[in-house]
């Protein structure tokens, strides 16, 4: 590794820390943690939209890379049932940030990010499809992968791996009928 690279890395390291410190002062309620150089903040539902708006407009996190969800049912040490996870990236700054939104039954509603990033549309539909999280303000919250008639949200941990018989639920075609 050359000296030039080392100084570059240190420089981005400090720039990153500065940004995250600024965010922490602006939103004192955030629980921030770091794992292997990746920063994660946990935010409450009321603060989520303002936080995301500020991250996009003031901190140049202009790209919503992914919206996904984790079901922490029976996970050791977990307090909340679901975490909706937003992955943000700044295309200019090269920064990355993970934003988590804890949700618990029975109130599985989250504000939709479609107003800020229209790319959130299909990703939120997938989270709805697989986990049953409702996104308020989503323009078209339908299932995206499974058939419309499907009744469960199969990536939840309490859904059996082999399903509840949906895969056997078809008419049988026989010879001489078609």
């Amino acid at each position: 590794m050359t000296d030039q690279q080392t100084t570059d890395e240190q420089a981005t390291g400090t720039a990153e820390q500065k940004v995250f410190e600024q965010i922490a002062t602006q939103f004192p309620g955030l629980a921030e943690s770091e794992f292997r150089g990746q920063t994660r903040v946990v935010v409450s539902r009321d603060e989520l939209l303002t936080l995301m708006q500020a991250l996009r407009d003031e901190y140049s996190f202009d790209m919503l890379v992914d919206v996904t969800c984790v079901d922490y049912l029976n996970y050791r040490g977990a307090e909340d049932r679901f975490h909706v996870v937003y992955q943000l990236a700044g295309t200019d700054s090269g920064l990355r940030l993970t934003v988590c939104l804890p949700l618990n039954e029975p109130d599985l509603n989250a504000p939709s990010m479609t107003a800020l990033w229209s790319g959130a549309n299909w990703m939120e539909r997938e989270v709805w499809d697989m986990f049953g999280i409702r996104f308020e303000g989503h323009p078209d919250l339908r299932r995206i992968l499974l058939p419309d008639a499907f009744e469960a949200h199969p990536l939840r941990k309490d859904y059996p791996l082999q399903g509840r018989g949906e895969r056997h639920n078809f008419e049988v075609l026989r010879r001489g009928e078609g």
Binding site: A149, G165, N169, F170, V172, R174
Partner: peptide, 23 residues
């Protein structure tokens, strides 16, 4: 036609069919 009889034997005899739909 005879294959149809075999098919009846082979297909869903031991399989549960739950509810309606998807067909």
């Amino acid at each position: 036609l005879s294959a149809q009889q075999q098919m009846t034997k082979r297909a869903l005899v031991e399989l549960p069919i739950l509810g309606q739909g998807f067909s």
